[in-house]
Amino acid sequence: MTKEHTGSQPPSEIAVGDELPPFDLRVSPTVIVAGAIASRDFMPVHHDRDFAVAQGAPDIFMNILTTNGYVSRFVTDWAGPEAMLRSISIRLGAPAVPGKTLRFTGQVASKSVDQDECIVEVAIRAANDLGDHATGSVIVSLPLDHAAL
């Protein structure tokens, strides 16, 4: 157990409007292919440039499971390992393609208490210079820190 493991967000210190630390993902072919294969998505548009171009895409592009994987990482890197994701809802837009950095940003949209948990909704956005790749919200629950709240 290392120190970096222990940093779950204390719910008492989370406020509506808080911004998550932005995360810049340098999207390369390797990033796209690694995500596609780890998620067991073998569609050629996610690893075969010639195939993707023939389909009208500018290049290979990120699959949706990979987008969800990075959204999950983005939120739990902030919320910490005690956080449990309840939902990830995204609307898909511009493709994530090699050479275009994808910037993940997020803001706490709401916070409520449900029994012994704090429920936090985070509005998220992942964008590159083509536009918004994904926008939506992630709901996460955290155990209440009984000392506060």
């Binding site: 157990m1 970096e4 690694a34 780890a38 990482r73 390992p81």
Partner: peptide, 22 residues
């Protein structure tokens, strides 16, 4: 998966740590 995404959340691979969580 976690290596592909660079996700270092210990709940996914560190059994000793994960046991200490909910």
């Amino acid at each position: 998966w976690v290596d592909a995404f660079g996700d270092r959340n210990p709940v996914y691979l560190d059994e000793a740590y994960a046991r200490s969580t909910r």
